[in-house]
């Protein structure tokens, strides 16, 4: 059932021209940024060559690209998540799901995985671009993998957060702004000092960004995603008045 719902979400995303425009535009921005970083790197390459343990091409090009991807996704994902539940409520199609013999868990997970599949496509396209570094130099695939994993986990976290806000309201715009505000707030936490800092997904992303894959970060993301999915399920379950 989750698969049926996820496939439907993916289908809905890909029949809308705006999705294709967005994908094309993103790819253009990333390519631009990638080439710009590449240029910068080539300019300073001669000086770097004289240094001991100079930063390699991967950390100079791939890692900043992943950070840009992370920020762009943070701003973009609320626009997708607002459609998942809030817009269905407004379009009065939500009732089809609530009167169907499926559980709130099916609905939430179906929508989550549908969106995640689409986000994975964006990330994969970016990954292929970064892997093209290997054509010209010795690319650090471990670092690239860490970055991809980081961006993917971050995207999944924002998707779960956005889904929760979408489940709260029937106004897509409210859902989008709510999710964006909280994502932004969490991002700002990164600049603070002290204990609250660890609450920010970006802090955990940064470890992966420099190639440090630690269990603590993975657990943080897993908790973040499961937590928001669980409260969304609970919210829908209560709304349906079900057990």
């Amino acid at each position: 059932m989750i698969r049926t719902l996820a496939k439907k979400e993916l289908h809905t995303l890909f029949v809308s021209p705006s999705t294709w425009w967005m994908l094309a535009l993103l790819q253009f921005i990333f390519a631009w940024f990638y080439l710009a970083r590449m240029d910068d790197y080539l300019q300073v390459q001669a000086q770097l060559a004289q240094m001991d343990s100079a930063p390699g091409a991967t950390i100079s090009i791939a890692a900043p690209l992943a950070s840009v991807l992370a920020i762009v996704l943070m701003m973009l994902i609320p626009l997708f998540t607002m459609r998942l539940i809030a817009e269905e409520r407004r379009n009065q199609t939500w009732i089809l799901l609530t009167t169907a013999p499926i559980s709130a868990t099916d609905i939430v997970l179906g929508k989550f995985f549908g969106l995640l599949a689409m986000l994975s496509i964006i990330i994969a396209a970016c990954a292929v671009m970064v892997c093209s570094l290997a054509l010209g130099t010795h690319a650090d695939f471990g670092l690239i993998a860490g970055n991809i994993l980081g961006v993917w986990l971050l995207a999944a976290s924002y998707a779960a957060l956005g889904l929760f806000f979408s489940s709260l309201t029937r106004q897509p715009v409210v859902a989008a702004f709510g999710a964006l505000a909280v994502s932004f707030g969490l991002w700002m936490l990164e600049m603070s000092s002290g204990v609250v800092r660890v609450l920010s997904p970006n802090v955990h992303f940064q470890n992966l960004n420099v190639g440090l894959i630690s269990t603590a970060d993975i657990i943080y993301f897993a908790l973040f995603i499961t937590g928001f999915l669980l409260v969304s399920i609970e919210r829908i379950r209560r709304e349906r008045g079900g057990v």
């Binding site: 029949v15 009065q92 199609t93 009732i95 009167t99 013999p101 057990v243």
Partner: peptide, 29 residues
């Protein structure tokens, strides 16, 4: 329907006041 929603709802077909249609899907899909 409150205690066993999945079983009860499987026996039900419902057309609400506003048909719950996804405008960007094909009829068959």
């Amino acid at each position: 329907i409150a205690r066993k929603p999945a079983l009860a709802k499987a026996c039900l077909g419902f057309l609400p006041e506003h048909p719950p249609l996804y405008k960007d899907m094909r009829v068959d899909d």
